[in-house]
Design a protein around this nucleic acid. Structure first.
Lengths: 192, 192
DNA sequence: GAATCGATCCTAGCACCGCTAGACAATCGA
DNA sequence: TCGATTGTCTAGCGGTGCTAGGATCGATTC
């Protein structure tokens, strides 16, 4: 029994190594550089080993995405819980979100830009994704305004943040005015 | 001289054919299906012919993007000019933008999701891109609010629309509440 | 302790990708 | 009519994601 447990442990450890390496490589050189060959070489196993853990590259991206969702939720909750008052909380949320996207571009891509084979806004949506949305909802709930469904409000606010994040990163928006853009967004969307 | 002109005409015609075929194929089966081999086969020329018109696949995507930018600008202007009053104009703009993204997903991807090798928010940004932004600015200018730079306001509004467009299309948002989301966005962001 | 047998991993290769060198044919100017 | 130029194609390079099948290793059994 103990032998089997050790094997399972080692297997789980290797799976973590794969995901961590994929993430690292993606952050260093972009997802295009994350090929199954390079990934295999970095973990010092052959290519087919990857396929004994994941169905394919897509699932590896998905695994990185789930990791990212958990971290994003944590980052948002940490930022909002440290702020006083609704206005400050919403602003902190927005900054934390955009900061996460800027600091972890590859992870953000895995979450929202690439196809990680994950289900969204559905029954079988993985828990980390639901929880990340919940983290946004917790703070945005109180500023949705009367008669506005908090979920709907959160979706719109989230979409705005997502737009800012992606357009900024793609060079569609100049980075200089990032702060006033956030201020404008918070002041207009949130009802205090 | 006339012979040369005919050749130039034919060459330009073939270039249009390449772009149109790439766009068609992308809309039908997604950009992943747009390979240089398939594209060459569809236009009934060999692969290298593509490279006598474009530096590579990226430039073909860029060409589709520029076409899309022109059409997006036209669609937005048509919608806003048909609306009465600032509120109606902004709402029409938002709907026209999201409608364009939903009806031409591949073109929208070429514009904002994929790398078409185009410069944005810079000196050498191609005219169609500048004009598409200008089309948004024309209408949003009047609802930016006092003391808010219209360009900055347009960027934020655009980012919100872009977020809604991409998250909707990726299945991150359920399509049912599309209308109320737009209403909320317009009511909150625009100062009437 | 040796033999067996199953799990595990790797080598090799598939079909496809973007892109290009070099052979070939068609057309043009002299 | 002939040479030069232009245009196009065939063939192939190195890369991709993914997989079949053989080899090897280690736990189990006698």
């Amino acid at each position: 029994m103990s032998v089997q447990e050790r094997k399972q442990r080692e297997r789980a450890e290797r799976e973590r190594l794969i995901v961590a390496t994929a993430r690292e490589l993606a952050e260093q050189q972009g997802w295009d550089a994350v090929t199954t060959r390079r990934l295999a070489e970095r973990i010092e196993y052959s290519q087919p080993v990857l396929y004994s853990h994941f169905r394919g590259k897509r699932e590896i991206i998905g695994a990185v995405a789930l990791q990212g969702a958990t971290e994003l939720a944590t980052a948002v909750r940490a930022a909002t819980s440290a702020a006083d008052g609704p206005r400050a909380r919403v602003a902190a949320l927005a900054r934390a979100y955009l900061d996460f996207a800027a600091r972890n571009p590859a992870v953000y891509d895995a979450l929202f830009q690439l196809d990680g084979g994950l289900a969204y806004a559905q029954e079988d949506t993985p828990e980390p994704l639901k929880d990340a949305f919940a983290a946004l909802l917790e703070t945005l709930d109180e500023v949705a305004g009367d008669g506005v469904h908090p979920g709907l409000f959160t979706e719109v606010f989230w979409a705005a943040l997502h737009g800012l994040a992606t357009l900024s990163r793609a060079g569609r928006l100049l980075p200089e005015d990032a702060d006033p853009r956030v201020e404008l967004l918070v002041d207009r969307l949130a009802i205090l």
